[in-house]
């Protein structure tokens, strides 16, 4: 199936952006921890946290675009997304990571690690799907 596209860069990855957790607490995007996502999902009635393991990272059809294939959840359902190489994902226990951390840091001033095959990213699914 064709990859879903996350080809835009949302404003909330900019350092200093204010993020509201599910319990109402406000945090800056650069201060978020794995626990913030886990606890917010626990409160949510609609969303649950899933682990998405990076299985492949391929160069996309257009410049600066990569196609990342994830194995989602316990069943490792195959999902691929097409993203700009600086698009950050939150890796469990590690924090923000992208395929090109230098660009992410330059564009968003967001400290970032290199996203690698085998990294386990925070993702969401609908509770009703489980």
């Amino acid at each position: 199936s064709p990859p879903s596209s996350l080809a835009t860069l949302p404003p909330f990855f900019m350092r200093g952006s204010i993020i509201q957790l599910a319990d109402g607490e406000l945090k800056r995007v650069e201060d978020l921890k794995t626990e913030d996502f886990i606890q917010s999902a626990e409160i949510s009635s609609e969303l649950k946290i899933d682990s998405s393991t990076v299985e492949r990272i391929d160069t996309g059809q257009t410049p600066n675009v990569v196609v990342i294939q994830f194995g989602v959840g316990e069943l490792k359902a195959q999902v691929s997304v097409e993203v700009l190489m600086e698009y950050p994902f939150f890796v469990f226990g590690q924090g923000w990571s992208s395929c090109c951390p230098d660009r992410t840091t330059r564009l968003f001033e967001l400290s970032c690690a290199k996203l690698c095959v085998g990294d386990v990213c925070v993702s969401l699914t609908l509770r009703s799907l489980g």
Binding site: I18, L26, S40, L75, F90, S123, L126
Partner: peptide, 25 residues
């Protein structure tokens, strides 16, 4: 009168990609 500048607040879930596993059956 100076109106306070509103700071955008983003919900936590907007930061996380929504990866719905494909239903195999």
């Amino acid at each position: 009168n100076v109106e306070p500048r509103s700071v955008p607040v983003f919900p936590w879930h907007s930061l996380v990609p929504f990866l719905a596993p494909t239903q195999s059956d």
